[in-house]
């Protein structure tokens, strides 16, 4: 009897490419980076070792924790701001626009993902410059000039440029999926518009709202363009710390320490948020 079907190569061959590629070039590099954080650097060369030198140096440094809390705080703020700013627009897109108009709007919002964020950041540099167009308009109204670049404000403009489209997309997806009858029923039962919003719409769209905020957090947390080119890079964020440590200091193992702390933080935040989004529903 032929029993070859049990040892069929066909499914294995389709499964293998991902395992090989992401294994060799995603899992292994990350594992190597983790191992590297215990290595030593002598005369600008890395030497395999297992010491906690890099960890104690980085974690014992006040500047590291300043950067940590700054990055975390900015990411949280960007998550909240993006959620609050996007929400009215998403509501309008979901409930006031026709299906096709909404789809077109969402399609437009995908466009920014495929434009260089660097070029956009550079455009903001010009627009928000002390002698730039915004200050020119404000100056004509007798205001300013304001210093908007190289500050937390500048960085936040960058962050929001990066994350707003995605947050609107997430929110609109979940809002548009709400059964319109539910809202009408609530209105019918005498709920005022604001109460309908609070007791029906927001709970029903919770998943999309949380996911949007989480992605905004993750993207902000890992972005270096906004803090570097619009936020003035001082004080540094964790990403800038990694770049500085890698590019100038040759201290890859110390950069690896920062990277691992970032991964752990992201993992904790994402887990907690997903629990909030999907846990205990209805």
């Amino acid at each position: 009897m032929i029993t070859s079907r049990k040892l069929d190569l066909y499914p294995i061959l389709w499964r293998l490419p991902l395992l090989v590629w992401q294994g060799l070039f995603f899992v292994v590099p990350l594992a190597f980076m983790a191992a590297m954080s215990f290595w030593l650097v002598k005369n600008y060369r890395m030497e395999p070792a297992f010491v906690f030198d890099n960890w104690s140096r980085m974690l014992g440094r006040g500047a590291f924790w300043d950067a940590y809390w700054l990055t975390l705080g900015r990411a949280a703020l960007a998550g909240v701001l993006a959620t609050v700013i996007a929400f009215p627009a998403s509501l309008f897109l979901s409930f006031r626009l026709s299906e096709s108009a909404r789809r077109f709007a969402l399609l437009c919002l995908i466009v920014p993902f495929f434009t260089s964020f660097l070029v956009r950041a550079y455009a903001w540099q010009v627009i928000l410059a002390e002698s730039g167009p915004v200050n020119a308009v404000l100056g004509a109204a007798g205001l300013g000039p304001f210093t908007m670049l190289n500050s937390g404000f500048g960085a936040m403009v960058g962050y929001l440029t990066l994350v707003l489209p995605l947050v609107v997309i997430f929110q609109t997806w979940s809002l548009a999926a709400i059964d319109k009858n539910l809202i009408e029923a609530a209105g019918n039962l005498g709920a005022a518009p604001l109460r309908v919003l609070g007791s029906v719409i927001i709970p029903a769209a919770k998943t999309g709202l949380v996911l949007g905020a989480v992605f905004a957090f993750i993207m902000t947390f890992g972005d270096f363009v906004s803090p570097f080119y619009l936020g003035g890079s001082k004080p540094p964020t964790l990403t800038i710390l990694i770049i500085d440590t890698t590019k100038s200091g040759q201290q890859w193992p110390r950069a690896a320490v920062v990277a691992i702390v970032m991964i752990l933080t992201l993992f904790a935040v994402a887990t907690a948020a997903l629990k909030a989004a999907y846990g205990r529903r209805g």
Partner: peptide, 21 residues
């Protein structure tokens, strides 16, 4: 394994790639 890479900050992936490559 198939879906995680884009959620990792690019700076971190860059560092890990640089070190490994």
């Amino acid at each position: 394994l198939a879906l995680l890479p884009p959620t990792l900050p690019l700076v971190i992936l860059g560092l890990a790639m640089l070190a490994w490559l």
